[in-house]
Design a protein around this nucleic acid. Sequence first.
DNA 1: GTGCCGCCCTGATCCAGATCAAGTCACCGA
DNA 2: TCGGTGACTTGATCTGGATCAGGGCGGCAC
Lengths: 252, 252
Amino acid sequence: MNRIDRHGRLAETDPIADDGDELRFCSTCAFGSVCLPAGVDKSALQELHVLVEHVGPYRNGAHIFRRGERFGAIFAVRGGVVKTCVIDDAGREQVLGFHLPGEMVGLNAIHPDKYPCDAVALDTVYVCRFSFAALTTLATKIPDVQQKLFRLLSADIGKATTLAGDHTAEERMAAFLLDLAARYAARGFSATRFRLVMPRGDIANHLRLASETVSRVLRRFCDRELIRVDGRELELLDRDQLRCIARNLLPE
Amino acid sequence: MNRIDRHGRLAETDPIADDGDELRFCSTCAFGSVCLPAGVDKSALQELHVLVEHVGPYRNGAHIFRRGERFGAIFAVRGGVVKTCVIDDAGREQVLGFHLPGEMVGLNAIHPDKYPCDAVALDTVYVCRFSFAALTTLATKIPDVQQKLFRLLSADIGKATTLAGDHTAEERMAAFLLDLAARYAARGFSATRFRLVMPRGDIANHLRLASETVSRVLRRFCDRELIRVDGRELELLDRDQLRCIARNLLPE
DNA sequence: GTGCCGCCCTGATCCAGATCAAGTCACCGA
DNA sequence: TCGGTGACTTGATCTGGATCAGGGCGGCAC
């Protein structure tokens, strides 16, 4: 893999950011079954491709959208990792989630009709922008599109719910690592080795832990030879054991 | 109000359970803007009313649906309060939420295509059952229905997210009480006096606290004259102060 | 009536994880 | 080469809320 060189720049051959390899990316995107010609009639597909807009690159720290902005579109991450977060009025950040290539961002903005959080690039990020108005119009014509949207929304409820549970630091950490692994695997990446693009502090915040606790738990997992860590590079060595630790918050 | 007499039975005049006062109920339901004739063409409305099925009563402790059952319908609570929860394999319950009259249950089941949790009546419960397949078909014909569903789903993501935050016992409790008050108010009930239908243990579990902590926090709120508590009857005395305590998790 | 049971409250103790305080290390710009 | 800075780690201490233990009370069966 080695998608990102040691200067943080994307390698030229990066399959994700490379628009020349569009089909390969779309096939792994959360919206792929919709965007790709899979039984959908051609004119409708044409409409979908017209309403998709490729945006990027965003550099590390750049905002894809900001809290409070009027809702107009949802986004699929094409390349890089996006963090969503809110800043409360005491100035403390709360990390809501990390969005990997192929995953959607902005679904939580439909109801309030404005983005309820910030979306920030954690490295070099490319996205597909879907105008939501156009998308819903299309959804009335193509039941598959509608169904896909319902499912994506429903799935996000489940994710948020799992995180809300009452669990120990080790349970949370194990579940987080396995979840990342599964999501990378679902997009065609390695399920055992990947890079934690986000800083420890963001992981900690997301899991409602202190960053010191994250360090310590990772250390313990290393000592028990469940994982191997080198900076932000991570390898899962004993996924069964991790699953066992995380069993109470994995099922959903 | 006094909707429930001291034997736990519904009073005869209960406006919610009374099918004779259907319009009044529908006007306060989360789906009301859809079910009621508000610009929607008549034949479509007819279809909607056909697909709605009134179910109940469920007695305290009865299941509306169980985890693992194949997903087929979403429900609007007509009367009573519904608790959703999961039991992990260690046998510990986790309360996901409470659903008041007019609110929807089951939206989180669309993606896994089976109910990911149990829905249990906390008192005498009546529901409207919406076949999801029929509803989505209708949604392709009536954009308002589709839009409503998108919004309901998106709103649930927001709710689950808020709960996932890292907050103190007092913040959680204050936010919980204000949230209940706002939801009762939105359905036409008093915003300052209502009944906590659920036992303390369920509140505690939902807020990821011990029931002892719930007791103590309520006690402290009483001492500070923010609320008045008599068993399960509750009155909010100083909502501004409560809002101040809960400010970090209310905005969303 | 009496005993039982479910729910709630209160006090004492304990502990997981937060916070505080120092480091180390890699990177970078002058 | 030398600070400076930001991300990460490690150890010491503190604390909010869990857990444990006990008791009160109202409803209900007998």
